[in-house]
Every structure is written in structure tokens, then in C-alpha cells.
Computed example of a mutant assay.
Amino acid sequence: MTTSLTASASRYVNRKVRSVKAATDQGWQPRAWQLYHAVPEVRFATTYMANGMAGATLYAGRRADDGTIEPAPDNHRASEIVQQIAGGPDGQVKMLGAFGKHLTVAGEGWIVIRPNSDVLSPDVPEDGHDWRVLSTREVSQKSGKLTAEIDGDDVEVPPGDEETLDPDSPVALRVWEPDPEHAIEADSPVRASIDLLEELLLLNAAVKAIARSRLTGRGILLVPKGVRFPTRPGQGDAEDDLIEVLMMIAETAIREPESAAATVPIVLEVPADSIADFKLLTFESTFDELALKLREEAIKRFATGLEMPAELLLGMGDTNHWGAWMLTSEAIRMGIEPKLQTVSHALTSQ
């Protein structure tokens, strides 16, 4: 295992009680989770990583001198231990998938393990353990004690004693991608893009405002005073007032924004000697088109900052099946495998 991973996992023990506060108080992480919920591109990239990691299989093995891994037999004690992680294969799928999201958004996550004799979970054997993967928002330090929010309840996790660790006591394990500048802190692709994603939210709001303005106001239509619509069949000699008819259409546009009536402008009747013909005044801004371009640029910049090929987020376009296979392979090698190594190292060492 490479040395860059040695600081990526830490079990909550007595000597590390004070260091936990620094690890659970990173101000950028709550905002990163908010952006995950607010920006679809963040959610897509995060879910892609999670689904990729969920497809992996944990197994026990020994690393040979040439770097290859030799799997242990199924009846080996190490294999039996691995099979019990997270309650078995189904639980391991959920655990790895959850870490795909935690490591991409906040750069860290927690594993809290409790004996089922205390938890009494129906999904876990009576003599087994309940495994929970928690986010940074669900783990905090209060009065020098580590508190985890599980199923809406605050659960205190006592620190373990390194000299006399009880195999049946609750365990809290922090797993994170270490920041290269300050290894105790976490790092993630979303962290580096927070300002960019804030910009993207502003551009989304601008585009939304532009769309609404196009529905409620298509400009002002100047109409010579006295202009009338021709009478409708069966109407007799009566005439429709132009403004009355167009305002009726405008009211329809407000009630039904998806109707064709939403495209009509506001009508203003002026003296006939002021204008010779109908005249449309619009309030379009050069920023309208610019906002769309800036939003597209922001999405591209975010895509290039991810730990996977940008084409997976932006779309593969005319990429053939060989190109698609290469992009997927690159995403696994550069984005998914390193995160799997982080989690595997944590489970192995802690």
C-alpha cells in the first residue's frame, strides 16, 4: 500500500479525542453537501462514483513481492472476517456505494460499528454487528465525546483503549481523502469547485429569470389608436376591440404559461399620428445569450475538475463504443479505484 494512504483512516481512540474536533469542523463540507442537492451535475458525478464503487467485491488476500494480490481461501480466517464486514455482500455494496458519495462530496465519511446485542437490528444476526456509514454532518464532538446521529437519535461512541481494545465495544472509524497541505483535513473534487458551483447557481437563477420574463412580457406592442379586429362570423355588425382581445390572450398566458398565448407582448395604444404602423419594442439584453454561454463554460470547468473523464458528465457525443469503453476504463482507474483503495486500506489497518 502506498504511503499516501497511511493517513486516510483513523479509529476513534483515547489519544485521538482532541484531534477529532479538527476533523469534524471543516466549514466547507456543509456547503458541499448543499451543492450536491442543488446542482444536478454534482449529483450525477457523485452517483457515478458511488455506483462504480458499489460494483466492487471485498476479499481477503496477501500482496506478493511483485505487487499482485493472492486471494485467501474461502475457509481462511481472514476471508471469514471479510465476509462479515457490513453484514455480508449486500451490506458491503451499500457501504462502498455510500463512500463513493462521501469521498466525492465531503472527502470523508465515518463507519460506526455496534454489537447487535445493543442495537437489536432485525437485519443483523443476533451475535453480529450493526454497521453504519455516516456523513460528516452526522458525526460531531460534544463535550469531548464523539456523538453520531443514527436513525434520528444521538448515539455516544466511547473512545477505545488502544491497550485493551474490546472486540465487542462500539467502534468509530473515520475514512478520508487527506488534504495534501494538511493531512488531518479532508479534500474532495467538490471542495475545489465550490466557488465555481456557486457561480453556476447564480447563472441558473439568471436563466430562470430570463425564461420567466419571456413568459410574462414579450415587450411592448405600439398600436395606432382606433385599430379594430374584423368581426367574427355570426357576430353581426359588432367589432372586437384590439386591446380587449389581446389582453384576453395575455391573461390566458399568465394562467397557462405553457400555452401559445404566453408569447404575446403588452399592448399600448397611442395616437395614430404618432406611429404609422404597428411597432414592437423589446427589452432583450445581451446578457441573455451570455448567461447561457457562461453556464455552459461553468459546467465544463466543473467536469474537468472531477476525478473522471469530463466526457462522462458532458456527454460522449459521437464517441464510438471503443471510445466509450476507454473513457469508462479511465474513470475506473483514475477515480473509482483510488477511492476503493482508501476504503480497503481503512478496513485493513483499522
Score class of each variant (00 low, 15 high):
residue 33 W to G: 05
residue 227 V to H: 11
residue 222 L to V: 07
residue 323 G to T: 06
residue 173 L to A: 03
residue 315 G to T: 11
residue 294 L to A: 10
residue 248 M to P: 01
residue 303 A to R: 00
residue 282 T to D: 08
residue 322 W to H: 12
residue 79 S to I: 04
residue 316 M to R: 15
residue 42 V to T: 04
residue 63 R to I: 06
residue 296 E to T: 12
residue 2 T to Q: 03
residue 126 E to R: 09
residue 178 P to R: 00
residue 42 V to S: 01
residue 151 D to L: 09
residue 251 E to D: 13
residue 54 A to T: 13
residue 337 E to Y: 08
residue 311 E to V: 14
residue 28 W to R: 03
residue 221 L to Q: 03
residue 318 D to M: 09
residue 167 P to G: 06
residue 254 I to F: 12
residue 13 V to M: 01
residue 345 H to I: 06
residue 44 F to K: 14
residue 72 A to W: 05
residue 92 Q to G: 08
residue 217 G to T: 07
residue 126 E to P: 01
residue 290 L to N: 06
residue 350 Q to D: 13
residue 291 A to R: 09
residue 52 G to C: 12
residue 240 D to H: 02
residue 235 Q to L: 15
residue 343 V to S: 00
residue 177 E to Y: 01
residue 43 R to S: 15
residue 156 E to L: 11
residue 48 Y to V: 05
residue 249 I to M: 13
residue 53 M to L: 14
residue 195 D to V: 14
residue 112 V to K: 00
residue 93 V to P: 02
residue 70 E to M: 12
residue 223 V to N: 03
residue 338 P to A: 08
residue 330 E to M: 06
residue 209 A to D: 14
residue 95 M to D: 09
residue 285 S to Q: 13
residue 124 V to Y: 02
residue 285 S to K: 14
residue 10 S to F: 07
residue 127 D to R: 13
residue 282 T to K: 14
residue 77 R to E: 14
residue 80 E to Y: 10
residue 66 D to L: 10
residue 305 G to F: 04
residue 294 L to T: 01
residue 143 S to E: 13
residue 90 D to K: 08
residue 56 A to N: 14
residue 220 I to H: 09
residue 184 I to T: 07
residue 185 E to Y: 07
residue 174 R to T: 00
residue 221 L to R: 02
residue 310 A to P: 02
residue 199 E to Y: 04
residue 272 A to E: 13
residue 2 T to M: 04
residue 256 E to P: 08
residue 173 L to H: 02
residue 337 E to D: 14
residue 152 G to A: 11
residue 39 V to H: 01
residue 123 D to V: 05
residue 170 P to W: 01
residue 274 S to K: 06
residue 150 I to C: 14
residue 310 A to L: 06
residue 210 I to P: 05
residue 345 H to E: 11
residue 225 K to P: 08
residue 296 E to P: 02
residue 51 N to M: 11
residue 190 V to W: 02
residue 259 S to T: 13
residue 240 D to I: 02
residue 28 W to C: 03
residue 310 A to H: 04
residue 330 E to C: 08
residue 290 L to K: 10
residue 22 A to T: 04
residue 283 F to G: 10
residue 244 E to L: 08
residue 96 L to R: 00
residue 29 Q to W: 05
residue 275 I to C: 12
residue 231 T to G: 04
residue 104 T to M: 09
residue 97 G to Q: 04
residue 69 I to Q: 09
residue 209 A to S: 15
residue 23 A to C: 13
residue 146 L to N: 00
residue 82 V to W: 03
residue 95 M to H: 06
residue 295 R to S: 01
residue 238 A to E: 15
residue 147 T to C: 09
residue 267 V to C: 10
residue 329 S to H: 11
residue 315 G to A: 11
residue 135 S to W: 01
residue 319 T to H: 14
residue 30 P to W: 04
residue 148 A to H: 02
residue 321 H to W: 12
residue 283 F to Q: 08
residue 288 D to E: 10
residue 66 D to R: 06
residue 15 R to V: 13
residue 313 L to Y: 11
residue 298 A to T: 07
residue 119 V to N: 10
residue 328 T to N: 14
residue 309 P to T: 00
residue 271 P to D: 15
residue 201 L to T: 12
residue 278 F to T: 03
residue 272 A to P: 07
residue 70 E to C: 10
residue 255 R to P: 08
residue 276 A to F: 09
residue 175 V to A: 00
residue 3 T to E: 08
residue 321 H to M: 14
residue 146 L to T: 00
residue 316 M to T: 15
residue 239 E to Q: 11
residue 315 G to F: 07
residue 27 G to T: 14
residue 64 A to T: 10
